[in-house]
Design a protein around this nucleic acid. Structure first.
Lengths: 341, 341
DNA sequence: TCGGTGCTTGGGAACGTTCCCATCATAGGT
DNA sequence: ACCTATGATGGGAACGTTCCCAAGCACCGA
């Protein structure tokens, strides 16, 4: 069972010094004569040499590792972004250490400590928890950091995510245009996640600007309760004697859309007559009978931008002002927001 | 900007030797006097010391890193298994280096090399490609290996995955019981992925045993083509003069179920009258009108078993016979396989 | 011919750990 | 009182790299 060859063995085999071999593999081939390069290449091939990243990381402090903390790996949106991050990393010769926190702040701390012990060169964080001293400590040491989708209290760092104001505007405009006049905004509890707060706030503001009626409901875990809330919204009598204006549901993210769809089915509501629209495009939104209208996030772009920001931060350490990169969603209009007389 | 403290600094602060501090953090506290332990703990806390995994990995050859290669990170099944793997790793104090190969053998090779350069202690592989010399080399060096879901030609390793024979049996029994007599089996191209081959083979065998009529269709990328194939199956006249027996579609995995559902909707087929059943349970299967019947894989269990097998292999290196761990799916019967007169 | 300049090459000291050994007490058996 | 076993502790050499520095050489202009 042959052990992996070391740089010294390659040097010996090639009749060169370990320094030269190191240079060869560190991408400084231009500093080496072509003849030497060739000898090293041949020797490395013969011995099937692969540089030991652990040793590299130790000596140079450059692990070539990026850490990514995902709040919920089973959320398709997160995975789609992860996919973008991964591609971007690969193009930069970086590897990705992915940790899932299952929305547990405690686990988030653990994983943060872990990543730091692997000397990651940067951190992309889709935060699950509250602002964290662990994280503060890491950034204090000059570790580049990018926040994904969710802001994190006191932490000063670039943020990459959806343009929530624009998204809500798009949604409200679309719903208004389609003739819906009374809206119910459905969201998961907004405490911990900044996009939920932003979207909710813009919803409230946007209503007024458009003279729409609307209210917000925060989901608990219970399907029953959600169904009751929706039913109450759909069946209660119109405000003044204004007749029965069309009503629609706006879902704050994919998980909510799923729950709301389930609830509407239980209530026997007809999609379209009862409007339904959600942020986040999912595989199945086209399949539910008249199709569910969504706002698709540019997930791949978001992922790539996260890596780009990270890289930008690591070159210009020095106190750069945190920047925000907000991307616009794309409206995919389907039958669930079409009032067919 | 304070650098992370080293073991030497802790030793100094605690008035102990680095050896003792090392022992403390390597979990050999029972070899240390309680007094010393306490001093070290206090010092480490004061300095916010965190052992450097790179240095550990270098010296001891133990990186505490497990590599996982996923063929398609956007497949919910893969993610669910990943989730199980991750939890199991965490319980063992292992970290997970996840790489996505996008079903590209070339990328698979690259990532394999990369993981080996990080000195991973074990590899969990959901293979995308053909048997690979890169992989052979790694196992040749005694790196423990577990195959997930897909077999890999010549590679001798434990396999963890679904009991495909059982799954197909369950499906056929259910469909037969519900009164469907002619089946169309839909699959992605079976060349590269062993479960596809196994399922297909068992489908063919299972038909005969149950006196069912049936055939198999291999999907290309085109939705049109699939719809045409399904239409042909649904509209062609019955074999003998046997009357018009109920027909059903059986989908080899989640991606196929999605495509088939799309196609059936385009054809205007009514689910139930036309049977539909798929392997892999997905969020939305309950939402498509009468509900889509599925076989749910025990993804969490599969993930955990993968890690368990890996650990078992690393203790008893010596030429243990490769084992297979096959888990049974759970039938979730819904309206899509209910013939309502 | 000489000092400088530029280029290729190599020696050796780190990096932060682990782990083999050595040291030094303390205690127990003769 | 002496030798040895036992247990706690520490010194120092690795592990496989990188990178500073220096050496060697050819070439140039004075």
């Amino acid at each position: 069972m042959p052990r992996r060859a070391t740089i010294i063995e390659v040097a010996l085999e090639a009749g060169a010094s370990k320094t030269s071999v190191s240079r060869y593999f560190a991408g400084e081939r231009d500093k080496l004569s072509p003849a030497l390069c060739e000898r090293i290449a041949a020797a490395a091939l013969r011995l099937d040499y692969r540089p030991n990243q652990m040793a590299r990381g130790l000596k140079a402090g450059r692990s070539r590792l990026i850490g990514m903390l995902v709040a919920d790996i089973r959320n398709p949106f997160s995975v789609a972004v992860l996919h973008g991050v991964e591609r971007a990393c690969r193009e930069q010769g970086l590897s990705l250490l992915v940790c899932n926190t299952d929305n547990d702040p405690e686990l988030e701390r653990t994983h943060l400590a872990l990543m730091s012990s692997y000397q990651v060169e940067g951190l992309i964080i889709n935060a699950s928890g509250s602002p964290d001293t662990e994280l503060q400590a890491l950034t204090g040491q000059g570790l580049p950091l990018v926040l994904l989708d969710r802001e994190l209290g006191a932490v000063q760092a670039d943020l990459v995510g959806l343009d929530n104001a624009k998204a809500i505007d798009l949604a409200l405009d679309h719903l208004a245009e389609q003739g819906y006049a009374e809206l119910l905004y459905l969201s998961e509890p907004p405490e911990r996640a900044s996009p939920r707060r932003e979207r909710l706030a813009h919803f409230q503001a946007g209503l007024a600007a458009r003279r729409l009626a609307g209210e917000a409901y925060t989901m608990s875990a219970s399907d029953d309760e959600l169904a009751r809330a929706i039913e109450a919204f759909l069946t209660r009598s119109a405000p003044k004697g204004s007749g029965d204006l069309p009503r629609a549901l706006l879902c704050a993210n994919g998980a909510v859309t799923l729950a709301a769809t389930r609830a509407l089915q239980r209530l026997g509501a007809r999609l379209g007559k009862t409007g339904l629209m959600g942020i986040d495009e999912l595989d199945w939104c086209a399949l539910i009978d008249p199709g569910i209208t969504t706002l698709a996030q540019p997930t791949e772009t978001i992922g790539r931008q996260a890596v780009a920001s990270l890289l930008a931060n690591s070159v210009s350490q020095a106190a750069a002002e945190p920047r925000q990169h907000r991307f616009e969603p794309r409206l995919i209009a389907r039958g669930s927001t079409r009032l067919t007389g």
